[in-house]
């Protein structure tokens, strides 16, 4: 059945749009945005509440589970949301299919690599003895 002959409204629009897919991607972007609303506010509020920003105070904060766990979530969900959002920008503005694939591949590698690097640094802080 070709596009336009489908029985349902959903069937008519499936596969259209600049990414050719994306219901799940769209929803994930929104769910992560709400998580980041909370985590981002937590992060900024925590930085403001800290009595000082010297290394000892900050390490102590991120060494405790109450600091390390939300921070880990902020890293993972933050990089995921950034990847999803940047993919929309790439899909909308990079029209050549080959270039679009390459851009999305670079984005994916940067997001996964950057996220891993940030998580590794956090793990060193959280599990380190120096706090």
């Amino acid at each position: 059945m070709s596009i336009g002959q489908s029985a349902t409204p959903l069937g008519k629009v499936r596969g259209l749009g600049s990414a050719r897919e994306g219901g799940e991607h769209w929803l994930t972007e929104r769910v992560t945005s709400i998580a980041l609303l909370l985590l981002g506010t937590w992060f900024i509020a925590s930085l403001l509440i800290l009595p000082s920003h010297d290394i000892r105070t900050v390490l102590e904060w991120l060494h405790a589970p109450s600091g390390a766990v939300p921070m880990a979530l902020l890293i993972v969900i933050g990089f995921k949301h950034a990847l999803d959002g940047m993919k929309v920008v790439v899909d909308d503005y990079v029209h050549d299919e080959g270039n679009r694939f390459a851009c999305n591949l670079v984005l994916l590698f940067l997001a996964v690599g950057g996220g891993a690097l940030a998580l590794f640094a956090l793990a060193r802080i959280a599990f380190g003895a120096n706090a």
């Binding site: 950034a82 950057g114 690097l117 956090l122 802080i125």
Partner: peptide, 19 residues
């Protein structure tokens, strides 16, 4: 885009510097 590129880079650098 700014938060994705600059924001996450600064966040990662900050964590690496701390560690």
């Amino acid at each position: 885009a700014g938060l994705s590129i600059v924001g996450l880079a600064v966040l990662t650098w900050w964590l690496l510097a701390l560690s």
